[in-house]
Design a protein around this nucleic acid. Structure first.
Length: 435
RNA sequence: GGCAGGUUGCCCGAGCGGCCAAAGGGAGCGGUCUGUAAAAUCGUCGGCUGAAGCCUACGUUGGUUCGAAUCCAACACCUGCCA
């Protein structure tokens, strides 16, 4: 049943740096699971896209506005990232999906030859709307009062059954997203993997609201699938994009399982979703449980993408429970704010102990930054507010997470995942950064 | 030499009789960041203390006052303008 190892282990990074002309733009999308994690839902696998393959589990670097902030695409490839995820809402507002379409698609526009993802903009409904002021709901029984306005903040998104009305955070103009519009935008953007337009709730919403929201997300998923198929059929030029649905349901087992089952059974003309995203509200300590509930309901032959997770312990938990790919802004955002990962935990390089420390961030790291620069230099760059600080630390953090996931994949293949997990997490959380 | 203005905590800078250990910046010190509204944000920031409290502080010295960074005098230094 499993393909030959050579098929399972292509060289995605080399493919990603080969340039556009050497790539076949017509490779069909596929996912092939490979080695399973004994007794758990985790596995390795390979996702094939028109722009190259992704060996899973894989960390997808986030490049919201068609750039991994502060870093050249060549560096993103060199540090081993296999794919980049951009955002439909942000690119729709600026520069406009039509511009990216005219440029030849997201990958060409941003000079990233490898696989690309776009998020639907569903998360922005939450971050610009309901979640805009979490305290707001603390003295009520849920975030449902659309008329409540928190001091100093303006609600920029409102949900209704048909879609979402946004106020642009850039210029205040009004915009409308529906499942159909999100699909049209994402088809114009042209990423290899796109996400259904979902509603992302918060833990502050009531159970009743979560139920209604999951139901709505499902109706939206059906509309996304229909529109995606129409665009795939009628769009010009023909696209080869894979649509992932997003499983919501907050922390309720029945909602999560039902949401997953409903999405799996959703078929139009014998075809359903190419993969599944797991999103939404959850507390950190429930991550593994929730991911397991969902993945138990999902088919083995479809990839699962966990949206927005990347702390080391979360990565192990997610992968162990069946996640194949995941993305997160944390490695790059945190890097721009001077926090860096090491095998012995995270620390801030802009603090006093690094001022005269002439060793790298992490002696064990093979990244561009650690093989060339000292903590003292990075400390100086942050203090001097030089932008190279962001660049170098982003490269380090992205490399750290990519490498961690590479190591996890290798440990699954070698049948020693659990040993590696105990060893890594013991060092990461059990000791203080060595500096 | 004359006239005018000034001297505040590590730096800049408000305060102009009590509510002043002294606004606000900056620097320093520490934290946070999970589908990016982020090169963001929060805390701390004279000393001793958990706290109450005490001590030391607004150029120097002396004075007025129940009470002075704030009023007065002398001195020191700085800055303008006029000789």
């Amino acid at each position: 049943m499993h393909p030959e190892p050579s098929v399972l282990h292509p060289e995605p990074v080399e493919g990603a740096t080969a340039g556009f002309d050497e790539l076949s733009p017509h490779l069909p999308y596929s996912f092939v699971p490979c080695v399973s994690l004994q007794g758990r839902l985790g596995r390795t696998g390979v996702i094939t896209t028109p722009h190259g393959t992704i060996r899973t589990p894989a960390f997808v670097a986030v490049g919201t506005k068609a750039t991994v902030k502060a870093v050249l695409p060549e560096s993103v490839a060199a540090l081993g990232a296999q794919a980049v995820l951009a955002n439909a809402y942000h690119l729709y507002l600026q520069p406009g999906a039509d511009v990216i379409d005219a440029a030849g698609g997201l990958g060409r526009f941003m000079n990233w030859p490898g696989p690309t993802f776009t998020d639907s903009g569903g998360f922005q409904v939450m971050s610009l709307g309901v979640g805009f002021k979490k305290m707001l709901a603390m003295n009520s029984d849920g975030v449902e009062d659309d008329d409540v306005i928190a001091e100093g903040k303006t609600r920029l998104a409102r949900v209704d059954e048909d879609g979402v009305t946004f106020t642009s955070h850039l210029d205040g103009s009004q915009h409308r997203f529906t499942p159909e519009i999100s699909m049209q935008i994402q088809h114009e953007l042209g990423a290899d993997i796109i996400f259904a337009f979902d509603e992302c709730t918060t833990l502050l919403n009531t159970r009743d609201y979560q139920e209604r929201s999951v139901a709505r997300t499902h109706r939206w998923a059906a509309r996304c699938l229909a529109e995606h198929q129409r665009l795939t059929r009628d769009g010009k030029p023909p696209h080869h994009q894979a649509l992932f649905a997003v499983v919501q349901g907050a922390e309720y087992q029945d909602l999560r399982r039902q949401a997953a089952r409903d999405l799996v059974s959703l078929m139009i003309d014998d075809s359903g979703f190419a993969g599944y995203g797991i999103g939404g509200a959850l507390e950190k300590h429930n991550l593994g449980t929730i991911v397991r509930w969902v993945c138990e309901e999902l088919p083995e032959d479809k990839p699962r993408h966990l949206l927005g997770i990347s702390e080391p312990n979360d990565i192990f938990t997610a992968i162990e429970n069946g996640v194949d790919t995941f993305d997160c802004v944390a490695p790059s955002r945190v890097a721009r704010n001077a926090a860096v990962y090491t095998v012995r935990g995270r620390f801030n390089v802009n603090t006093a102990p690094s001022r005269r420390n002439f060793s790298p961030i992490d002696e064990d790291c093979d990244c561009y930054t650690c093989t060339r620069y000292t903590q003292a230099y990075l400390h100086h760059l942050f203090k001097a507010r030089e932008m190279l600080a962001s660049t170098l630390c982003t490269i380090h953090n992205e490399r750290f997470i990519v490498r961690l996931v590479d190591d996890i994949r290798a440990s699954i293949e070698a049948g020693r995942f659990f040993d590696f997990k105990i060893d890594f997490l013991g060092r990461y959380y059990g000791s203080s950064p060595n500096r």
